[in-house]
Simulated assay, not measured.
Amino acid sequence: MAKIGIFFGTDTGRTRLIAKQIAKKLGDLADAPVNIGRTTLADFLAYDSLIVGSPTLGDGMLPGESCGLSQPSWEEFVPQLAEVDLSGKTIAIFGLGDQKKYANEFVDAIGLLHDAFADSGARIVGRWPTEGYEFAASKAVDGDEFLGLALDQHHQPVLTEQRIDTWLEQIKPELLP
């Protein structure tokens, strides 16, 4: 059975820790998480099923060099997807944000990644309810759902593990052939 690829972008390391937690919970079903700034497009495309994660930085941006990161991240990787056909790929997205300090762009990175992958033909799975969060706006919302798993390690860290467990049970059948 093909393994699930896990790719993440990070600023402070929180997204990396969540990616590692997800990988541990998936066990043999997934390969070790990889920082998107340290991989190639070919390595990314080697997977048919992927879980991708990102924090939202500043005013709703993907992590990258223009945000002050010392290495490339999603900001530099996403443009490569414009020339790629992701048909046949299934992708689940998780994102980290701060719903109080950045209430107007909470987990926007989920929406930005969703659009990039969907525009390239990928099937996106893993929507998550907005109930239980307090924020003003987000590019990651469609109706009453986030386009992926939204996590707030600043204000709701005690909810993270249960949210991950529930989300993984939801997406596993979609990601496994």
Rank of each mutant, 00 (worst) to 15 (best):
F94G: 00
I22L: 11
I164W: 09
R163Q: 14
L62A: 07
S138A: 03
K172S: 05
L175F: 07
A82S: 13
H114K: 10
P177F: 09
P79R: 01
Y47W: 02
I164F: 09
A118Y: 09
G132L: 04
L62G: 04
Q156M: 13
G126D: 04
Q153V: 14
Q71K: 13
K89C: 05
P129W: 10
G60T: 04
A118T: 10
D152E: 06
F135R: 10
L147I: 01
A42F: 10
V158A: 15
G68R: 12
S66D: 14
I18G: 00
E75V: 00
P157L: 06
F117I: 07
Q99L: 00
V52C: 06
V107C: 10
Q71A: 14
P129D: 05
A30S: 15
L17Y: 13
V78H: 00
I124N: 07
T10F: 10
G121I: 03
D28Y: 14
F135C: 03
T39I: 06
G13M: 01
I22M: 07
G132Y: 12
G37W: 02
F94H: 07
F146W: 10
L96I: 12
P55G: 06
I4C: 01
F117V: 05
V141H: 06
R123S: 12
K24W: 13
P33F: 09
V78Q: 01
L45C: 08
E76H: 02
E83N: 15
V34N: 03
K172H: 09
P173Y: 13
S73V: 01
I18T: 15
G111C: 01
V125I: 10
Y47K: 02
I110L: 10
E76Y: 07
N35H: 15
H155P: 03
I6H: 06
N35M: 08
P173R: 03
L168H: 00
T90H: 09
A46W: 09
S120H: 02
S120Y: 03
G13P: 10
L17P: 00
T130H: 06
L69K: 09
A32C: 06
A118R: 14
A82K: 13
K3T: 08
S70W: 11
Q80C: 11
V78G: 02
G95A: 00
A30D: 02
A109D: 08
E134D: 15
F8Q: 00
V141R: 09
G9L: 01
L45K: 12
L96G: 10
A140D: 03
L26Q: 12
